[in-house]
Design a protein around this nucleic acid. Structure first.
Lengths: 170, 170
DNA sequence: TATTGTTATACTCTATAACTATA
DNA sequence: TATAGTTATAGAGTATAACAATA
């Protein structure tokens, strides 16, 4: 929230007009908008959407079922059906029928999908580099560590071990 | 990007199985997904979307024109027309014709819109508190400062001074 | 009966192109 | 001419409900 909701939150550090602190809530909301904006622009440059490239990133070293994807992405399974269907039409992913359970389907990435993701990821890395250019090396390490901790905590709250999420493997 | 794209990036610090570092790029991407997920759930709990609540947050202390909103949100002006139209139908915002330029329109928030935003913001704050529960006070301060710096840098890159963005005033 | 995935349907969000009305 | 905003249209993304196939 707080999309620039308050110019100066009560709990914010006195701004030295150059390194103002928005407060944790607004700062995280604004940061997420900034990152998502970068992701959106990068994806669009490759004729894809943010959710399509996210899907490819997940499939990069996993081949989950539709239900597993839905749980991870927090989407209804019918939404994932459509998502995967559009990606499949573009030749970015493939559906593979499961051997054990004939109701189930595993989604895999194609070479074309991998290439698109790798190129998009490189562009995203460059875009992020610009955004964090003003941070000191120490600040970048702190940001990386804190952001990682929050991401892991979020996944854990949803019952997912983000560091070992590999439904295909076991 | 990098939605769990690599379980262990080459540049990541050796994980002590509890405070693993995803690397700055993946960490920021995952953090943004976590925050956007929280925003989505909170907005949905109030029968709204993430972009609708973001719009309300912007209008909380501003009454920009359609064009100004489009620039800030990085959307086409026709998209903003629809966005504001749907919000207006729900009684959350109002269009006010400009006195000086009769082509122009200023968008203002209604009391109902303010109430919805305030309630959603409180919920979001609570959701974020859970996510950052594992961080030390020092880590939270560092995260807040770094996230603020990135948000400000992002806005500046787009030609916007986020700390003094008040088109209505000037 | 429960689960996996799809289909049918409707809505939000977004962009492009063409338009109206001001300036 | 240029700018502010709208409309028409099309497509992606999402959810709900109903469904088929399998377990």
């Amino acid at each position: 929230m707080a999309p620039t909701s308050r110019r100066r939150p009560a709990h914010a550090t006195a701004p030295a007009s150059g390194d103002a602190d928005l407060g944790l809530v607004d700062a995280l909301a604004q940061l997420s908008f900034a990152v998502q904006g970068a992701l959106t622009r990068v994806a669009a440059a490759h004729d894809a959407s943010i959710i399509q490239t996210r899907l490819l990133g997940i499939l990069r070293d996993r081949c989950p079922t539709i239900t597993e994807l839905a749980a991870f992405l927090q989407l209804d399974k019918s939404s994932v059906t459509g998502l995967v269907g559009r990606a499949e039409e573009r030749g970015l992913v493939r559906r593979i029928g499961s051997a054990h359970d004939r109701r189930s389907v595993r989604v895999t990435i194609t070479p074309a999908g991998q290439e698109l993701f790798d190129r998009a990821r490189a562009d995203f890395e460059a875009a992020l580099a610009v955004l964090v250019a003003g941070l000191s090396p120490a600040q970048r390490r702190q940001l990386s560590a804190a952001a990682s901790a929050v991401a892991v905590a979020d996944a854990r709250l949803r019952g997912i071990d983000i560091l070992n999420w590999s439904p295909a493997g076991g």
